[in-house]
Amino acid sequence: MKKIILCLSAITLIAFTSCKDDATKKIEEANVTAAALRDADATKFPKLEFNETEYDFGDIPKGTPVSTVFTYKNTGNAPLVITDIKSTCGCTVPEDWSREPLAPGKTGKFTVTYNASGPNKITKTITVSANTESGSEMVKITANVIDPNTK
């Protein structure tokens, strides 16, 4: 009896699955074209190119804030969106960047202020998060902080 029920179940399953419509007939050509265009655009990225990737303040006195401006250009073929700019510590503050999309060929800028709190040679990295292919780019600042009270 179990064999009969199992055979009938198998035959019923085969009958139901073989009666389905051909799924390829349900594909609309407009959707295929739209998907191909979307996939082609997915390979287009903005490219963030800096005028300089490292700025040296030289010798600066301890406790004196100094600033520089990093200028960048979108050399890619899609709008560039900078989502965040962070530094490696609180003594380095990036500010004044546009959160609006930057068209290909256009330029932008942001300011980095460093508060020289400790003596010696420093290097600070600033990470720019954007919709580029790599997702982030880096610039650096360096300085030689001199303590005027040290002889």
Rank of each mutant, 00 (worst) to 15 (best):
R38P: 02
E28A: 13
T24H: 06
T123I: 05
K3I: 15
D56E: 10
G90H: 04
D147T: 11
F45M: 01
S117D: 10
K26C: 11
A40R: 03
D84N: 13
C19D: 06
T92E: 15
L80H: 00
K44H: 08
K140V: 12
V81A: 01
P65Y: 07
M138I: 05
A130V: 04
I85V: 14
T64N: 14
G105C: 09
D21Q: 13
K124F: 07
F16W: 10
K106I: 02
T75I: 15
T142E: 06
T43P: 00
E54Y: 07
T127G: 14
P101G: 00
K86F: 01
T75A: 13
K62T: 02
P94Y: 08
T83K: 14
L6M: 08
A130L: 03
P79T: 01
T53M: 14
V112M: 06
I27E: 06
T75V: 15
L48N: 07
E28H: 08
K106G: 02
K109R: 10
N74T: 02
S117P: 00
I4V: 15
E137S: 13
P119K: 06
D147Q: 10
F16Y: 10
T53Y: 14
E29H: 12
G118A: 07
N131E: 02
L6P: 00
V93S: 12
G108P: 02
S87V: 13
S67N: 06
T92V: 15
